[in-house]
Design a protein around this nucleic acid. Structure first.
Lengths: 235, 235, 235, 235
DNA sequence: CATGAATGAGCGTTCATTCAT
DNA sequence: CATGAATGAACGCTCATTCAT
């Protein structure tokens, strides 16, 4: 879906705002139940003008998915590649994941609910990226089993518990509510690390180092405003 | 949508089979993306006849939600009311919940994905039932904090972790695969009980008692065949 | 585009009438310039009901093409296979072709103008059939060059002249006007046979035999009412 | 559709190039199936600028029709007015007509297929011009019947055969292929003249004189480059 | 009970055209 | 001169629902 070659300076700004609104609507009503007319009404544009920006309805879905997956995966790879204690890296990953969930809750709803509405190719790409993300976690859990007190006899099952605990959060979380991503990350990791047999000492150490890390390497904490905007993938 | 006053003895049987098929289709394609024609083709009935049984498309959604919520809630209430160790009851609840997820995976997909397509009243009813279910868990966790080694400083957050861990399972579970509900319940409860500070002793005891319970009181183990069918329709 | 399995007795009748009307409209305004709404208005049916009968707009085009090609080709094969003088067979073919043009003028307009709107597969099929038809004529002309006074040094060019002369008739012919298919066939064949160097004797003989043939084997004269209706091809 | 009163010297050049491109696209895809956007892309202009040159889409169609009809009719009048044997003039007309078909095949496709998309007034003008052209041929054929061996008992039918044979050529001709306009004109006229009862002598004479004519009065041979461009717009 | 037929609203998308800049 | 942006109508098509038979 190639867009016309020349566009005014406002084009991309406006386009991003339309995708924002689409994410809100899709999150609230579902992708299939939201019409392009609904979106037009919400952004104050006739349908014809909308298509000037969006290309197609499915394209919106692709962009939204990519706005989630793209920064998540790149940040996850950065963290996984750090030379640091695997528990620390899991803890950092937990907070990154929750940060994204908090700051783009509507995108996450769409990401979790409507990915099956993608067409074959796009779906395959997305599932591949999801699988990559999961394998990063599996790798860290396996590493942790070797270097700490954690017991991970079934890395796949441990990974799935990690993902269950984090990913389902979008269903009830209220940004600005009682808990923030940092707090939840600490709690979730505490549950999981203890739950997988980790000692209180290992747990405390990971938490301390995470605090230190965020102090010393702030660029590795996900700044969602920066992370989202360029969304360079797909389309 | 009043159904005709008198119908033959097969009416209800046939109706239930249609809802079964609807659940399969909705799970696979989504509620909004499944047409009444699709359903008609799948059950081998023309649209006119179909409407005789189903009343409306939304009605199907209501019935499916109720088929999940109704046995789950009644079984949860039964279990919560038992005179027994709260950890044991949580363990039994875990297995019941996972059993439903395993045996009616298609219903769960619909339950998790398409409840927002319900109209206001029906949605309110459903959300109320979900809240009731959650409070049963909160109650058991609070009890457990008093009677065992568990520390539950924030019962709401503990409840949400319990729900996250269980409810997200539908996204990846494959019935007939590596794990069964009993195995997953043991693993999940082990993670949670340890994660909330429970001792290995408490944990082992709960597991033993659960085994004994299922031996002595088999009627309290969820038989999914029985559990579903009569599902008294809410609404 | 499989139609639902069961249909009332009127379905096919109505369907054929709709295709008739579509052919009229397509002939008058062109396929691309005729909307499904136009057709609905013309047959007195809402768009939804129309689709119950037609499947798709392109399907109408396919059916119309097949209504022309199918009887034309089968009749042409019958005639070409006769054990008779090639000039006689060309003369019979000429009349068959003109009879179709006269009796389904609107179909011919669509056939000549809008075949390029067909999608790849259907277009390929049609072009193949057209090619088959042309080769029948080429064959007869070549035969005639051997057995009569005709000189056909370039069979392809002779074929194209035969086709030009006949096929372009749809542009100006008025059924019920001054000339009928028999008359035009005689005139066209006279022009072509003389034009290709045939003697008056050959020409007269072919005309006489054609008259005899139509008297003795009336079943080989194209009865357009019978020829059209079953239109068993494609869809 | 008044064009702005003053434009630069390039205006007309550019305009003609745009019409060239439009003719290509309309011929390939059909007038109704070609969008103004397609045209804009093909000529490298945004829609706004395009409309500065074209006025409207229908205007393009009018111009293309006129580019065919206008030189054809003026050349035909020139030829018909010559003091020369009618068979010679028919022969010259044949070659002129075929030359136009060869050199502007795309225009001819549009001319033959999409004239029905013209609005009432334009269509009336065009049909009048077509009729004028036909009457020139009828006149020549009638003259020929008086001065040569041709028998033309029905001048209208003879005219239509002349037109059928020539006009349908656009459907299959490939410029640069086996035959050129001169060759086809000779063949077509041979078929027609013989077919209408002309002697080989008359036929040979006409062909000889045509060769002489083209040698002595080359300005009467259609130079397509000159013939097209200035095409005074009808409408 | 069950069907085939019909409706009217809505779907995602494309169109010819306009116009401020 | 030329652009990018906007419109509103129409496109082909699908939908949930109804109802005479």
């Amino acid at each position: 879906m190639p867009r016309p070659p020349g566009h005014g300076p406002d084009f991309e700004v406006r386009r991003q705002k339309i995708i924002d609104t689409a994410a809100e609507l899709f999150a609230r009503q579902g992708y299939a139940a939201t019409s392009v007319n609904d979106l037009g009404r919400a952004v104050g544009l006739a349908k014809g003008a909308l298509y000037y920006y969006i290309g197609s309805k499915e394209n919106l879905l692709i962009e939204i998915q990519s706005r989630v997956m793209s920064p998540l995966l790149s940040r996850a790879r950065q963290i996984a590649a750090l030379e640091a204690d695997p528990l620390l890296r899991l803890r950092l990953l937990s907070e990154s994941l929750l940060t994204i969930i908090f700051h783009r809750l509507d995108h996450i709803w769409v990401y979790e609910h409507d990915y099956r509405s993608l067409s074959g190719d796009e779906l395959a790409t997305l599932l591949g990226q999801r699988s990559d993300f999961e394998h990063l976690i599996t790798g860290l859990l396996t590493e942790a089993a070797g270097q700490s007190s954690l017991r991970v006899p079934e890395p796949r099952l441990a990974t799935l518990q990690f993902l269950n605990l984090h990913n389902h959060t979008y269903q009830w979380v209220k940004p600005g509510g009682r808990w923030d991503p940092q707090y939840l990350a600490r709690e979730y990791c505490a549950t999981l690390f203890r739950g997988f047999g980790g000692t209180e000492a290992d747990l405390g150490e990971a938490e301390e180092r995470a605090a230190a890390f965020k102090r010393d390497r702030p660029e590795l904490s996900l700044d969602p405003e920066v992370a989202w905007v360029p969304a360079p993938v797909a389309g």
